[in-house]
Amino acid sequence: MSMTKLAAKAVNGEADAFLDLVKQLENSLYAMAKSILRKDEDVADALQETIMKAYKSVTSLREPKFFKTWMFRILINECHNLIAQRARADVVADVPTTDVAQADDYAKVDLREAVDRLEDPQRIAVILHYYEDLPIRQVALALDISESAAKMRLLRARDTLQRSLSTFREGKMNLGSI
């Protein structure tokens, strides 16, 4: 069943449909929360709170097709709430663990790492638009900003990525030549 149909059932109060939907999105939600919070305990808290809040108010969602956008909006708010509650040092002290990549995945890993190093607003916009395939308008909705602001964040993100990847590659070439 399509996500929109499931969302329509969830909006009508069907718990099973809501659960099916959330399970479809859980990896994406996890990736977003992980990208913002890093620490797994915090990620678990944010996801749990997001899912409970979404479930309790899913019947107020007017447009089922916006379910995914709506979930991300709740999650991003929850993550930022958690950050506000925690001491900053506590949040950044935990360096994320990175999976070991295969050789031909290096380019992708480089890019993902570069995305991970983006500032929060740009990184979240990149994840929503490029990783989650949300149109600009829904990125704007999820972040509660204008479409032009969303476009600007993505443009700046691409500029930053362009610069950081170039710098990184030049560094590798220099190392190689020694």
Partner: peptide, 14 residues
């Protein structure tokens, strides 16, 4: 970059 970003989105953390 845009195409690469879209591809990169397929590799979600475990």
């Amino acid at each position: 970059i845009e195409q690469e970003l879209k591809k990169a989105g397929n590799d979600q953390p475990a």
